[in-house]
Nucleic acid binder design. Structure first.
Lengths: 191, 191
DNA sequence: ATGAGAGCAGACAGACCTGTCTGTTCGGAA
DNA sequence: TTCCGAACAGACAGGTCTGTCTGCTCTCAT
């Protein structure tokens, strides 16, 4: 018998509501009471599925990871180069949407200073996955130094997310496209 | 008579303590009680100088702005190009320090989702100042499209701060130096 | 010397937050 | 039919947070 099935409808409602509220308003600003009220779930039910609030935050980060992985998976592209361009172009699109509130991982990390905290480790897992994805695509695209170039793309990724949140959200998209093109085609990474 | 002189020793102690704690642990995680205890100040004295906690947070952001402006002012450089390189190199240095916890402006913005909030506006003021600084230096350096190139440098700035906080803090420095050199020397910004 | 202002100490109210507990309802499996 | 687990409703405890208020002390300028 699946004691704590992660497929439980009540659990899903809680996680969906938490995802929406945490992203829109921040983790520490949203209390358990509000989440269970908007999810239509009893408090006991919440604590039946999650041992504490931090566990819910960790689940929120992992859920975001799954969603972003799925979104990138769905992007079709002819080759690694096109895939990389598609990833950054999609990020620019999403960043310009009205409800964009920055990168959920960067935002959550700002509220969890301790690098050893489970939430931070879940964030680290996403970043590690994304970095590896960049490296693999760059390797396939014939980049001479995929590790270093992936670091550079990571920089652009984070800068794009922050800029869309804090500055004019439409400005970075073409700038990023140029930059990624230059990184892919440009001088062979030597100093 | 200077009713609420900003030079008051008690006020300075509060602001210094708040700066240290807010940066190290986040804004919402640090309570007023702890700040006044560590600053050695009575609660009434705190509320004599700041109408509410949010005002202290705004003062913290403005204090960070002043400090960063002073730090950049102190950097000596032969010309605009060298100044730009010096700014980013210094950021890479600071990002590798043990107590580095990310960009205080990005971190604070993550805790204040509402763009109309005074704290967000204080953050916007810093970013606006920094962006203008980049534009002016790029103009002096003869960049053909300083506005667009400044956007790109802004991206690198934010990416550097995030990377030093969340990933290996020593990795980005050389990558950023290469990137900035390429941005300054590289293809004349055309598509 | 006296009075104003700056600061200290700490109690207090009221709200909110997390997490626990009691009791009830309901559906499905044995 | 009966019984168990999942979920609901909501009270409750214990802690924390912000902001107010009362008194007291000290310094300094008038």
């Amino acid at each position: 018998m699946p004691a704590n099935s992660p497929k439980s409808p009540a659990r899903s409602r809680v996680l969906d509501t938490a995802t929406r509220l945490f992203y829109a308003e921040g983790v520490h600003s949203v209390g358990i009471d509000r989440i269970i009220a908007e999810a239509g779930v009893a408090k006991a039910t919440f604590y039946h599925h999650f041992p504490a609030k931090d566990a819910l935050v960790k689940a929120y980060i992992e859920e975001q990871t799954r969603q972003q992985q799925a979104a990138i998976d769905e992007l079709t592209a002819d080759g690694p180069r096109e895939k990389l361009l598609a990833v950054f172009d999609r990020m620019g699109q999403i960043g310009a949407l009205a409800d964009f509130r920055g990168c959920p991982f960067i935002n959550a990390a700002a509220e969890y200073p301790d690098p050893a905290h489970p939430v931070r480790q879940a964030i680290e897992e996403y970043r590690s996955w994304f970095r590896t994805l960049m490296r693999d695509l760059l390797t396939d695209a014939g980049d001479p130094d995929p590790v270093r170039t992936a670091d550079l793309l990571m920089l652009i990724r984070d800068g794009l997310a922050v800029a869309c949140d804090l500055d004019d959200p439409t400005a970075p998209r073409p700038v990023v496209r140029d930059a990624v093109l230059r990184v892919l085609d440009g001088a062979p990474a030597g100093v």
